[in-house]
Amino acid sequence: MRNLFKFTENEKTKKFLGAGFSVSLAGLAIGGLMIHGHGELKLSEVPLIYPGIGFLGCLILIYAAKGLAVVLRRDENYYDK
């Protein structure tokens, strides 16, 4: 069967996708400032709250996981010892 994802091997395509992704993010951030939400919560009305949750939320979770690893990460045979 033809490889559906062959396009990911092309450097030009990769760069194009990367640029498209960056532009989309910028568009989303600006668009979010212009579109009014449902106004259910004051928190949801804070400007750039959703990009903040997406970006900082992920960073915080990943670094929290790395911190957790220091305490909880063990060898694969830990329970067999």
């Binding site: 579109i35 449902h38 959703y50 997406g54 939320g57």
Partner: peptide, 19 residues
């Protein structure tokens, strides 16, 4: 709704950016 689509895409898009 437009707001909902944009909000969700913002969360997901910026999450991917962090990754």
């Amino acid at each position: 709704s437009p707001a909902h689509i944009v909000e969700m895409l913002q969360i997901l898009g910026f999450g991917i950016l962090a990754f």
